[in-house]
Design a protein around this nucleic acid. Structure first.
Lengths: 191, 191
DNA sequence: GTCCAAAGTTACATTTGTGTCACTTATATG
DNA sequence: CATATAAGTGACACAAATGTAACTTTGGAC
């Protein structure tokens, strides 16, 4: 009983992601977004009170999706299979990491929109906590070194995705080498 | 034969760095910077034509300083000493990495200011090339695995600085564990 | 002490973004 | 086919950033 919508949330979030990755929080504007969507700027205000609301809604959506895919890890048996799955997932969803970074920026300037703030603060920790059971499995199976802090192990793995491949090493070799360094290190064993 | 300056380039770049790290390229403004320096905005235009010029000048300064400190590495004998020096330097100058990231953002929007553009594109590569002789030494001494791509080894080491320490693990333990993972990996050797 | 040149400021025009409101348009339903 | 209603637009007032130009201040040289 009303007119058809010109865009949906998935499209909107897709364009928002591009802009956020390109310009960061401060460079993200409703004008840019509206232009890309080929709608008027005012139309965006029908759905989101302001920039903060839109961005936080988007980030929550994005992180929840990542977390959802991540939960598939539980279906795999044994630490080494889970390890491979995790690395591959991280490289499939390269951006989530940058977005978590951007999320910090947003939170610094958030007084209101408390609902979202709570959710947004909780999600990265949820992810870390969820991954901790994966780390625990690795330590129980005697695969991971006991004395390394869980937080570092998780952070280390997640961070590898951001290593810039300046010399254009082929993706397969790149990921393979990263797995090797993470697991066995870059030193020879001849000391 | 003229009036005394209220600020010097070092102060200026110091404040610029804070702002850039906090707000990124898009959120960096002359107003913010002038406020912090307690000078008028217009005074900045006496020295820099625009935002791009100031930021690129600053980045070149910052990277050159890092490169200069990095060159001290040549005075050290043997790969392992150099390895320790490099890790410590990276953790001392945590921000350089984020700045290199921000530099990419700037370059995308640079048509003019060609002089700076060339210099700015060159510097990260200079750093990589310089570090390659360090990698070469490691491989020659039989300390580093021959088959790992140089670019990955360098990138990997530089990237560790950005791992977020969400759980506040003490700095000494943190850095020590990172060195261990880089060199020996996080897996046990019992496979 | 005068005077020049560089340092700094104030004030203005322009542009870009924000948020709001009155308005128009499309369409499912009766 | 009439109409209620959500979707979308255009236009306004306000705020903030940019770049420039005319102005004032300072301090060393003569």
């Amino acid at each position: 009983m009303a007119r058809e919508r010109k865009f949906n949330t998935v499209e909107l979030f897709h364009e928002a992601k591009q802009l956020l990755l390109q310009h960061g929080y401060d460079g993200f504007t409703f004008s840019l977004l509206a232009d890309r969507m080929e709608i008027s700027r005012a139309a965006l205000y029908k759905y989101y009170d302001n920039k903060e609301k839109l961005i936080t809604d988007f980030m929550i959506y994005e992180m929840e999706e990542f977390l959802h895919e991540l939960k598939e890890i539980e279906k795999l048996e044994g630490f080494e299979q889970q390890f491979d799955f995790l690395i591959d997932l991280i490289f499939k969803k390269t951006e989530v990491h940058e977005l978590i970074r951007a999320a910090q920026q947003v939170m610094e300037r958030m007084e209101d929109a408390i609902t979202n703030k709570n959710k947004l603060e909780k999600l990265p920790l949820d992810m870390y906590n969820f991954l901790q059971s994966f780390i625990l499995l690795g330590k129980e199976e005697g695969k991971l070194k006991q004395h390394l802090p869980d937080g570092l192990i998780i952070g280390f793995i997640l961070q590898t995705v951001a290593i810039p491949n300046h010399f254009g090493i082929p993706k397969a070799e790149w990921i393979h080498s990263i797995k090797e360094i993470i697991s066995q290190g870059m030193f020879m064993n001849n000391n």
